[in-house]
Amino acid sequence: MSKVRVGGFSISLDGFGAGPEQSLEHPLGKRGPELHQWMFGTRFFHTMIGKEGGSDGVDQAYAQRAMTGFGAFILGRNMFGPVRGPWVDDSWKGWWGANPPYHAPTFVLTHHPRDPIEMEGGTTFIFVTDGIEAALDQARTAAGDLDVKIGGGVETVRQYLRAGLIDELHYALSPVVLGQGEAMFAGIDLPALGFRVTEHQASEHATHVVLAR
């Protein structure tokens, strides 16, 4: 049976999943890239950006797993881009250029309608205006027997957690203290939601923790 999963979500030691003040210049928020150092050096990430080389090992295994087995993705609007309010034009098509890394139907939560965008590599961005459950219903249909990934950002993951709609979480706990940003766990009681730690493994750059219900 297909699952709804969060995979490869980086958080700081003090529980922030993104830095403050996200903008065009700082897509992950200020200091946000520090959370993702565990992934940047992997063979998986090098391949994704068209480079050779990269490391194997623990981080590579979790990075590969974080993007494998999914037939659809769900993103919050902030994860798609810095544009706020109504779509003034169709020029913004995501942070990733012509060939985004999803290669599957990708549903973007928004309050403002927009026509789907077909990108290279099999990614189609579909904009959903009637809430997280409607987006998940569409994503499950698109994914078939494959899993659905809740790709972020922080508030999107939190919404799906509060609604009890996530089956598995993989957090990469980075050895970084941000002090401020988007807090992942504020007001979230994971044990009360039925989650327990099912695996954990450390590398030089992160501690990978998987929780499941």
Rank of each mutant, 00 (worst) to 15 (best):
A72G: 04
P86W: 00
V83E: 09
H111T: 12
P116G: 10
G94L: 14
T110W: 14
V108T: 05
L109W: 14
G85Y: 01
K93D: 07
V83Y: 01
G71W: 07
G71P: 06
V88K: 14
V108H: 02
W96G: 07
A104N: 04
G76A: 13
T106S: 10
G121N: 13
W96A: 12
W96N: 13
G81D: 01
G76T: 14
A98T: 14
I74L: 13
P116W: 09
P86C: 00
T106I: 09
D90A: 14
P100S: 09
F73G: 12
P113S: 07
G81M: 03
L75M: 15
R77D: 01
E120H: 00
G81K: 02
T124Y: 02
E118H: 07
R114D: 00
E118D: 08
S91H: 08
G122A: 03
V88C: 04
P82M: 03
P105W: 11
F107Y: 15
H103T: 10
P86Y: 00
N99I: 13
T123K: 08
G76H: 11
N99F: 04
W92P: 05
R114A: 02
T124F: 07
M79S: 12
M119H: 07
M79G: 04
Y102E: 14
R77H: 10
R84N: 03
D90W: 10
R77N: 07
A98R: 15
Y102A: 05
G122H: 04
G85R: 04
I117D: 06
D89P: 09
A98K: 15
P116T: 09
F73T: 13
F73C: 05
R77T: 04
P116I: 08
W92I: 05
P105Y: 12
V88Q: 14
L109T: 12
G85H: 01
K93Q: 15
W87T: 09
A72D: 02
Y102G: 05
A104F: 07
T124C: 02
W96E: 14
R77K: 12
F73Q: 12
G94I: 12
P101W: 10
H103K: 10
V88N: 06
G85P: 02
N78Y: 00
R84D: 03
V108F: 03
T110R: 13
F80Y: 12
T123N: 05
S91Y: 03
A104E: 08
R84C: 00
P101F: 11
L75K: 05
H112D: 13
D115A: 13
E120Q: 10
T123C: 08
N78V: 07
G81R: 01
N99S: 13
Y102S: 05
P113T: 04
S91Q: 05
P100A: 01
G122Y: 07
G122M: 05
W87G: 04
L109M: 15
P105E: 12
W96V: 13
H112P: 11
W95F: 15
F80C: 02
P86L: 00
F80W: 09
H103L: 01
W87Y: 14
R84W: 00
H112T: 09
D89K: 15
Y102F: 15
